[in-house]
């Protein structure tokens, strides 16, 4: 048998073996056996010196081709076998994707905090600052500076916890406004602020009363502030907190620190204005009090009411939360039942 035939025979035999092999190890053995230094191909090539010089290139070419073919076949087979191995491995790694994920514990902001943050963000966007003040106030800032001199009948509207004759638990967050107004340098521009915080009233706790609750009050003082601006601001606030479908209506009211004073109603959440028991068939729910700052309040804070004017408004996040989420007992907010607290998803 000439070299030529030997090579063809080797190729045929090797390809056959490769195709039959079913493992990577076997394939490696074939590679070493056939292509290795001691393998038949090397052996065959050693016989090169016995053939005429003129034949050698031809045989050389053939032997290279045989080698290439065998190598290619091995690689092809290897890829095939490896794929099968991976497939097998993946098959073994299969899991039940319907098992629950590992929980990530996540606490929630208090629902009242969420409402306060919401209001803060809205007003920050409109150029207001957020100002906090003391919870233990003086009679002067809680009442007198707000046009509620001692013995004013409207003091009865907010029965107050006193510590001494002059010191009390603030019954509203408006003293923060009085304090801020007093300090504000109007030559540097208008005052636009909101003051969120805890307030206290002399009330017995029950489903609708709490001796502690929250307020957010707003104040804008500048040279050209109109009641239309107040109306527009309250509408913006209502739509932000409740949604675009909500309307606002103003009704006359009375607060000593504003004149004119109004109360603002929004469309009833429960019936969307059709009338129901929640809104006493009116279709409206009272949500906040507001008005144009009383000239006496401005004067007492050292602001000239002939030049400056503005509006103030106040609302109760507790009441908002009760209305918005249908919470029927205000005490829920201060008992901190985890099952209650975790109901109010921040993003939903």
């Amino acid at each position: 048998m000439g070299l030529h035939e030997q090579l063809e025979e080797l190729k045929k035999k090797s390809l056959h073996e490769i195709s039959r092999t079913d493992g990577l190890k076997g394939l490696d053995a074939i590679r070493v056996n056939v292509l290795g230094k001691k393998g038949p191909l090397t052996e065959i090539l050693r016989g090169m010196r016995d053939i005429p010089k003129t034949e050698r290139p031809k045989v050389g070419e053939l032997s290279n081709r045989v080698r290439d073919n065998i190598t290619a076949a091995i690689e092809e087979k290897r890829a095939e076998l490896e794929k099968a191995v991976i497939a097998k491995k993946l098959e073994n790694e299969k899991i039940d994707v319907t098992l629950p994920g590992k929980p990530v514990l996540q606490g929630q902001p208090h629902v009242i905090q969420q409402i306060i943050d919401n209001i803060e963000d809205l007003f920050l966007g409109m150029g207001y600052q957020v100002v906090q003040g003391p919870e233990v106030e003086t009679d002067k800032y809680n009442f007198e500076m707000l046009n509620l001199p001692k013995d004013h009948p409207a003091r009865d509207m907010q029965d107050t916890f006193y510590i001494t004759d002059e010191i009390l638990m603030r019954s509203q967050t408006s003293p923060v406004q009085a304090r801020t107004m007093e300090k504000h340098d109007f030559s540097k521009g208008p005052l636009k602020m909101i003051s969120p915080g805890v307030v206290y009233r002399r009330d017995t706790d029950d489903a609708t009363h709490s001796h502690q609750f929250h307020q957010v009050e707003g104040l804008v003082i500048d040279k050209h502030i109109t009641m239309g601006d107040l109306k527009g601001t309250l509408e913006t606030l209502a739509k932000e907190l409740f949604g675009d479908r909500f309307e606002v209506r103003l009704r006359p009211s009375y607060f000593p620190f504003t004149e004119p004073s109004v109360e603002a109603d929004v469309t009833c959440f429960n019936c969307m204005g059709k009338g129901c028991s929640v809104c006493k068939q009116t279709g409206w729910i009272e949500v906040l009090g507001a008005g144009m700052v009383h000239p006496n309040v401005l004067r007492m804070a050292g602001v000239d009411p002939e030049v400056y004017g503005g509006y103030a408004f106040g609302l109760g996040p507790d009441r908002f939360a009760m209305l918005r989420y249908g919470v029927d007992d205000i005490r829920n907010f201060y008992q901190n039942d985890v099952r209650f607290l975790s109901q109010f998803s921040k993003k939903g």
Partner: peptide, 20 residues
């Protein structure tokens, strides 16, 4: 009638609203 008042927002110098 309060219903007849316009709905506007304050104009005037810009103020910066930001948390401390």
């Amino acid at each position: 009638g309060y219903d007849n008042l316009p709905s506007t927002l304050p104009t005037g110098p810009t103020t910066i609203g930001r948390l401390t």
